[in-house]
Design a protein around this nucleic acid. Structure first.
Lengths: 211, 211
DNA sequence: TGGTTTCGCTACGAGTCGTAGCGTAATGGC
DNA sequence: GCCATTACGCTACGACTCGTAGCGAAACCA
C-alpha cells in the first residue's frame, strides 16, 4: 500500500482510528479533480467536497497539495507488471506499452509533471516521489534483467555498481522518452513508436555491453 | 528573437511603441524569480516589481503566468549549438552536455516542467512551447544528421517520412532521458553518464538503421 | 464509563488574482 | 507645432483561495 500515509504518526492503540475508506475516497477524488480541473485549478476544498469529507480532514493527513497528488498518482503506476513475452525486447516493449497507456490518462499527465516540477525546490517532496513512484517501479528493470540472464540473453553482471548504473540509465531512458513523447511532443506512443524505440534501445544495450 | 511576444497585435505604425527594454527586463526578472521562489510562489506582482514596471504592463503583454514563463525559459535554450567534434557520437555527446548544463540551472528546472504540466490541459500553451522551444531546437538533430551524412557515417535518407519519424524519436529519447535524469532521478548528468548514454544511443541507431 | 483521538462544521485573517479607471508619456501624421 | 493614438504607472477594488482555530459529536480502547 504505497509508502504509507503522510506522516505515519505511530499508529496509536487508543482513540478513534482513521477511516481507511476516507483515504481511498480522497485519493480517488483527487484523481477525479485532476481530470476535470487539472493541477493548477485543483483546490483541496474541492477535493474534500468530492470525497465527502471535511476540508480539515485533508490537512490533518497531508501537508498540502503536493503530497496529496503524489500519493494519488502513485497508485496509478502500481498496476504495471512485467509480461513474459519470451525475449528481452518483447518484455521491454510490453512494459513500455503499459507505461504509455498510463501516461495517456489525463490525471497522470497533469499530476505527475506538476509534482515533479514542484520537487525541484522541495527535497522532501522529491524523496517522496522517488520512494512512492520511481524506486517502486525500478523493480521492473531488475526483474527484466534477471529474466534475460536466465534466458542467456544477458551475461550475469560482474561489477555490482556498474550493473546498478546500467539499471538507472535504462530507467531514465525508458521513462524519459515515453514521458517526453506523450507530454512534450504530445503525440501518441502507439505500437509503431514503441516498437521503434524498443528496437533502438535493445540494440544499443547489446552493443554497449559487448564492450 | 523567439516566437515574438504574446499576441503580436500587428505592430501599429502610430502611438507610443512598446518598450523593448521592458521586455528584456521582465523576462530576466521572471528567471530571477524562478530561481528564488520557484514556480508555485512566483507572482506576477513580484515579477513586475523586480523588473521595475507596473503589474498592468505585464497583463497587457502576456495572457498569464504560463505564457510569460514559456518565453522566459525559451531564451535559455537558444544558446545551444552543435559542436563539430569529428564524429556523430562526439557531436551528440557535446550537445547532450550543453543540454544537461542548461537543465542544471534552477530557473530551467522548475520553469520548464511546470509549463509542460500546465500544457497538458491547454492546447494553445502546448503549441507555444512547441514553437518556442521544441521545434526550435530540433534543428540540432537535423544539422547533426546532415553532418554525419556528409562524413559518410549515415546513409542519405530515402524515405522522407521515415527520416522525419527518426528525428522525432531521437529528440524524444535525448531530451527525455536528460530531463528524467536531472529532474526525476535528481542526479547530475555528468561526463560519465553522458558518455554512457550517448554510446547506447548511437549504437542503437546504427543497429536499427542497418535493418 | 472515562480517556483519547478523529471527524464535520463554521468562521476567520491573510494573501493573490485579474481588471477598471485615470492621468501622463511617447510616438507618427498633418 | 498640434492632434490622434497607443503604452505606461499608479491606485483601488471584488472575488477567490489558503491554512488554521475552535467547537461539539462520534468512534474506539481499557
Amino acid at each position: 500500500m504505497l509508502g504509507m500515509q503522510s506522516s505515519t504518526p505511530a499508529p496509536r492503540a487508543t482513540g478513534r482510528p482513521r477511516s481507511a475508506a476516507a483515504d481511498a475516497a480522497i485519493l480517488a477524488a483527487t484523481r477525479e479533480a485532476l481530470v476535470e480541473l487539472g493541477w493548477s485549478k485543483l483546490t483541496l476544498s474541492d477535493v474534500a467536497t468530492r470525497a465527502g469529507v471535511a476540508k480539515t480532514t485533508l490537512y490533518r493527513r497531508w501537508a498540502g497539495k503536493n503530497e496529496l497528488v503524489v500519493d494519488a498518482v502513485a497508485e496509478l503506476f502500481d498496476e504495471l507488471e512485467l509480461p513474459d513475452c519470451g525475449t528481452l525486447g518483447a518484455d521491454i516493449e510490453g512494459v513500455v506499452h503499459q507505461f504509455a497507456a498510463i501516461l495517456a490518462r489525463p490525471e497522470a499527465k497533469s499530476g505527475l509533471m506538476a509534482v515533479v516540477a514542484e520537487s525541484t525546490r522541495d527535497e522532501a517532496l522529491r524523496e517522496r516521489i522517488r520512494a512512492s513512484i520511481v524506486d517502486r517501479q525500478k523493480r521492473l528493470v531488475l526483474e527484466g534483467r534477471a529474466r534475460a540472464q536466465a534466458r542467456g540473453e544477458l551475461p550475469p553482471e560482474t561489477d555490482e555498481s556498474e550493473a546498478s548504473r546500467t539499471v538507472d540509465l535504462i530507467f531514465d531512458v525508458v521513462a524519459g522518452a515515453v514521458v517526453h513523447r506523450c507530454l512534450v511532443s504530445a503525440e501518441p506512443a502507439d505500437a509503431a513508436w514503441v516498437h521503434r524505440f524498443t528496437t533502438v534501445l535493445v540494440a544499443g544495450l547489446a552493443a554497449a555491453s559487448a564492450d
